[in-house]
Design a binder for these strands. Structure first.
Lengths: 200, 200, 200, 200
DNA sequence: GGATAAGCGAGACGGTACGTCTCGTCTTTTG
DNA sequence: CAAAAGACGAGACGTACCGTCTCGCTTATCC
């Protein structure tokens, strides 16, 4: 899933701790900082280089375009919010997970980054984006699997609908209307979604 | 509702057909094209000027920031989709209206504009955006008013929830997951939303 | 000598106290200020208009080019230094006059202006400049005439040489080498010049 | 003496014939042309870039201000006129040297450059200008040294005066009054100066 | 253990776009 | 009818970043 896997650089150097690996780490960290500070739009490779104390040509050697660098950095960040824990019931699991998602929009810097992701031209980084979203949906899938194991069976089509009914309003608040996203709101969306798909 | 109303430009020139009005039209149309072709990120005022056959300084005189230009272009388009017609029932009215909204994402040009709208930094144009969304919500309010007049009463809080439950998934498909938006999908979101708020 | 005499504007308006005359006065005064403050190079008609509280199109109606406006303003200023007084001898008259000239270079703002005049392309405002320099040389001519009336006769060719031998070093210090110009220096140049032309 | 020596540019590139050296040459030549054609005032870096077939940002990298570019172009030319030859006597040496200087004003291109040099604001490039003039005066110093070796001793203060009495009128003719500068005129200024300092 | 190849530091460069300033022209309204 | 008012085309400004290139230097394997 890491984009840089395809890079021609670093056949041996990427051993953990190697010089190359250090560069990669420092650059991605710096990119994340830059992203959080300036948002996607004003993201500047030049500044990333300065932050990482790496020459800018070195960055271009590994990440041919800005989009690719940003994407790698985003993925790095995204994983932080991908920690679903078993809460004992489908409803509780969904609440917990989407409260985490909602919190991401609450962090202005993360919000800026998500906003940027959306702004990327649909034709850019298609595969990378597909992979990213697949990864995210895998998380909710796990939640439903776990529920099924507990006996709360939800049909695949209903899973999809439920996720859209919860995530849709959340994203809309986060990206579009700027309405607040707190735990109560997230909970009510979860309830509405479960009611809509006829889940007890 | 037009953002440019606050601009120092156009005292008399904005009479329909006047020179200024022509410039405004040409620029906004060109901005929409530019947005479609290059996306918000690579949106270049310089190119808009070339497309519109207007000098770039003229654009800066009216729209001091890129955000404002994009916003005005979006608003221009938005009104096209704001024509709700009485279909005889709340469900039918909502379907009709949101099918129109969904269609907007189907038009690549419009989709690009909406994408641009989202990409504008949240601190930018706060008032203008608020006004814009107020306008959009006014349309669904009318639908609910009409329904109330017919006896289909929905509490204000439920109106809001219903709209979010329909529009949220639609926008998410349009902006984020790129899943298809057809009439069947819109219909099912409307049904889900009405079920969620307990509307018969 | 006033350049604006050739302007198509102001057939009757230039009666002293007329509306046009007031505009002319205010604009020239403002132009002089602007010149003194920003120097020739960064002289901006726009700012002159603001200073004069006159619309900038009004200025362009009278002074088709910036050069002409500047020139008129310079001439206005120059006269301030053109007040030779009878000091009783050729040597004293020359000293007094050129000490005044030297003082002009001492005023940094005036110096900036002179510097600008020199920088004007030789092909620009040829007639105006010729007229200006003729005016200036007329002053030294008066000095020599007065001396002749007193019995200190100097041949025309020697007058010219003397003036060049005094003014030359002065201008060079003022414009080129930035060496100091004080009364002692001016005096010694006058003495050298008179010695060179064999004047007692 | 080259101003650009202090520039952060050109670590190795300045080897004669290197890429950077070529750029420098081409730009300075183009700057001289531009100065000749448009004068200092309408001197446009943009046009210099076009003439030199170099991107304008490249020019700004090396010469942050217009003044520095003009100055370097002037210095480049100046050296051409700095070749005093031993003519056997002080008078002859001075004549030969200043005839060369006068000739410089005769070359329109060089004259335009000198005019530009004068137009530079006095606060700009103070050190560079000081160095430049020191270099020029060193040439006349050599002439006086040579004369002293031959037995024609001139006191330091008189050297300075003499040079000003010759160069001053020359520069004034060249820059200000546009009077002709031929060998006869130069000769008479030399003679006048020597007479003024009491040199046989 | 010295060639050799890869990665990095360094920096000039061509290039796009930015957003601003000023110019001088034009058209329309006002006193 | 001149001045006020202001939009406009035009051109240059100087800056920020982009992505490419060329050139040494270092370092870590591989013969």
């Amino acid at each position: 899933m890491r984009h840089v896997d395809a890079s021609p650089v670093d056949p041996r150097g990427s051993r953990p701790g190697g010089r190359s690996a250090q560069v990669r780490e420092r650059v991605l960290a710096a990119a994340a900082d830059e992203l959080l500070e300036h948002g996607f739009e004003r993201f500047a490779v030049t500044r990333v280089a300065e932050r990482a104390e790496v020459h800018h040509t070195t960055i271009y050697r590994r990440w041919p375009t800005k989009s690719e660098l940003v994407f790698d950095a985003v993925v790095e960040l995204a994983d932080a919010y991908a920690q679903p824990v078993d809460q004992g019931s489908l409803r509780a699991d969904l609440r917990a997970y989407f409260i985490g998602v909602g919190a991401a929009f609450g962090d202005r810097r993360t919000a800026a980054l998500i906003r940027g992701l959306v702004a990327i031209r649909p034709d850019d980084l298609v595969d990378a984006r597909r992979a990213y979203w697949a990864g995210r949906f895998r998380i909710t899938d796990e939640i439903f699997e776990r529920a099924a194991a507990r006996g709360e069976v939800v049909a695949p089509a209903d899973r999809q609908r439920a996720v859209e009914l919860i995530a849709g309003p959340l994203w809309m608040r986060g990206l579009v209307t700027s309405l607040p996203i707190d735990e109560g709101v997230v909970g009510s969306f979860v309830d509405d979604a479960l009611r809509a798909i006829g889940h007890a």
